[in-house]
Amino acid sequence: MYDIYTETSLRYDPDRCINCRRCTQVCPHAVFTEGPDRAELARPSACMECGACALNCPVQAITVQSGVGCAWAMIAAALRGKDMDTESSCGGNDGSCCG
């Protein structure tokens, strides 16, 4: 209860994994850990959907709908009549929280 962050869009197909360990290098929250033969999805609920793992996986074993978890940007996009998922811009604008 009161933990809305348990579900993410991260999907992992271990059958495709070639154990290059790139995902374990780029994930800032240790969502993936090294296994004996392939990467293991150890902490899926810790995924912040940054997309680093999917972008760097050479065999497309990982998919995720990446984006920035920024309420300010998403609400601003909604107020401008834009799509919250694809048209919210975080950073680079006056008033944004990114620097």
Binding site: I4, Y5, E7, E49, G69, A71, M74, I75
Partner: peptide, 17 residues
């Protein structure tokens, strides 16, 4: 403050909103 934090996901923030 979710945007300044280091761990919130887009899916979660959208649900929060």
């Amino acid at each position: 403050f979710t945007g300044s934090s280091t761990f919130t996901s887009r899916t979660g923030v959208k649900k929060e909103i």
